[in-house]
Design a protein around this nucleic acid. Structure first.
Length: 459
RNA sequence: GGCGACGUGGCCGAAUGGUUAGGCAGCGGCCUGCAAAGCCGUCCAACCGGGUUCGAUUCCCGGCGUCGCCUCCA
């Protein structure tokens, strides 16, 4: 049973399942107005890790993650670049999946697009107006947060503070809203001076588009139903996004998420949040093109999901080298001819105990590294039975968090022939030739291991 | 102004009121024709000041510093 920190109660508590054996989880997905960045990577990797782990314990995971394809930034960009907004969203969604596939992130079981749920959103808004929880103004329809008794559950701030607005910030839509914390459910289409069109759908109150917070509440309830198990996202989504999703459900008398999970940010070398507005972000595609994409996953596994993590070439590089060690062990064991045997249940149990404690991935992975070290020692000592058990264990535990370790490469015949020639040169004690052959293979990108029992090459 | 997180060894990063986190890098050794890989060993630690305690990196108070949120945001 997974115990998980719940943002609403601020406690670590068991993740209850509404339907026995099935975990229903909603992950707020990307707004596709630009290429995915490193921060998106943390989000998707983290919830992929959660899903893989739950599945590895025999549970079924209904993993719904949306694509937000209606949003001001999309419209702004389309206007700026003078092309249809659909082109922007299609293009960036393609980049999104390209990055997800490269990182080994499983596709969600459902991927709702906001544009497919506008009718349902209009129905929801009508319901809210009918219940006096929302009101119509000149520029759109707003949700009255005062109508939600426990508004502030996730952000843990007092309603009266939020109603008046905080900090020195300008309150968006202040001229129309009754209270600073009220948020837009529907935005009326503005006439454009240049005659261009922006995305617009009909509603009883006037053509327009839904607000972001209405999109996710509709899609999560439509696909997962009331009282679904877990709602997740980055810490920045706690407020206002998740608070506001929940406010709508509560105002409608509907049961919403039973458990809330939020992960911390990616930070740069100076410890600052990485984001596009700060100009210090890096795209995910850059990362997966230049590093082993698995290494970002391992870097996250070596940290806690509620702590900020530094992501840069140094830290990802360190993880990449660590991963190399795990790969090496897995393949060494295979090369040593170990039989396929079950893993070590005591290690698996210890691993799960760590994971079940609020996803203590760092200590869970420490167990994996320890198993790999002992496995290497077993290979060195010729204890192939032990090596086999540990190799299976390491492979299984890595797979349980989505890390697929390399298997033996397909080595081309000519490379094998060169390795064989290298061994012959060594046997003949022609070390100058042997060194030359090895240097050639290394120059071609092969990692060459020259041992007593012969030379092995791999990528 | 409100709410919250955090300050750990060269770097990243965990747990924990007393016992080795782990990874990367370094150093010594074993192995190797020499390397590589691997193994063994090893150096390096808790922002500052008080307090509680037999004992604090871990709890409490104060200070200093960093970061996040308070309707763009993973």
């Amino acid at each position: 049973m997974l115990n998980l920190y719940d943002t609403a109660t601020r406690t670590v508590r068991p993740l209850a399942m509404r339907d026995p054996g099935v975990v229903s989880v909603y992950v707020c997905g990307p707004t596709v107005y630009g290429p995915p960045h490193i921060g998106h990577g943390r989000s998707t990797l983290m919830y992929d890790i959660l899903r893989r782990y739950l599945e590895s314990t025999g549970l079924t995971v209904r993993h719904v993650s949306n694509i937000t394809d209606i949003e001001d930034k999309i419209i702004d960009r389309a206007a700026r670049e003078g092309r249809p907004w659909q082109e922007i969203t299609a293009e960036n969604e393609a980049l999104w999946w390209q990055a997800m596939d490269a990182m080994g992130v499983l596709r969600p079981t459902d991927v709702p697009h906001a544009t497919d749920y506008v009718t349902e959103m209009v129905t929801l808004i009508a319901d809210l107006i009918e219940r006096d929880a929302a009101y119509v103004t000149d520029d759109g329809i707003y949700m009255s947060v005062a109508s939600v008794a426990d508004y502030g559950l996730l952000t843990h701030q007092r309603l009266e503070d939020m109603l008046t607005g905080g900090g020195d910030r300008e309150v968006f839509g202040a001229e129309n809203k009754r209270a600073a914390a009220d948020f837009a459910l529907w935005k009326f289409t503005k006439p454009k001076a240049d005659g261009s069109s922006e995305p617009s759908w009909p509603s009883p109150w006037g053509d327009g588009r839904p607000g972001w917070h209405s999109e996710c509440v509709v899609m999560s309830l439509a696909l997962l139903g009331e009282h679904f198990d877990l709602h997740t996202g980055g810490q920045d989504l706690k407020f206002p996004h998740h608070e506001n999703e929940r406010a709508q459900a509560v105002a409608l008398g509907k049961g919403f998420a039973n458990h809330w999970m939020h992960h911390a940010f990616v930070v740069d070398a100076d410890g600052e949040k990485m984001s596009k507005s700060l100009g210090n972000f890096t795209t995910l595609l850059d990362l997966v093109d230049t590093m082993d994409p698995r290494s970002y996953r391992l870097l996250l596994l070596q940290s806690h999901y509620r702590s900020p993590v530094s992501v840069n070439t140094d830290t990802v590089g360190a993880a990449e080298r660590a991963l190399g060690g795990l790969d090496t062990f897995a393949r060494r064991a295979t090369d040593a001819g170990v039989a396929s045997v079950p893993g070590d249940p005591s290690i698996v149990d210890a691993f799960r105990a760590r994971m079940d404690d609020d996803l203590d991935t760092a200590n869970a992975m420490a167990l994996v590294f320890d198993a790999a070290r002992r496995g290497n020692a077993a290979v060195d000592a010729g204890d192939l039975a032990l090596a086999a058990t540990l190799a299976t264990t390491v492979r299984e535990l890595c797979a349980a968090v989505g890390l697929v370790l390399k298997t033996a490469d397909d080595v081309p015949a000519d490379v094998l022939a060169r390795a064989s020639a290298l061994d012959q040169a060594r046997a003949a004690k022609d070390f100058a030739l042997a060194d030359a052959l090895r240097a050639e293979l290394q120059a071609d990108g092969w990692l060459v291991e020259t041992t007593k029992t012969g030379t092995t090459v791999r990528r």
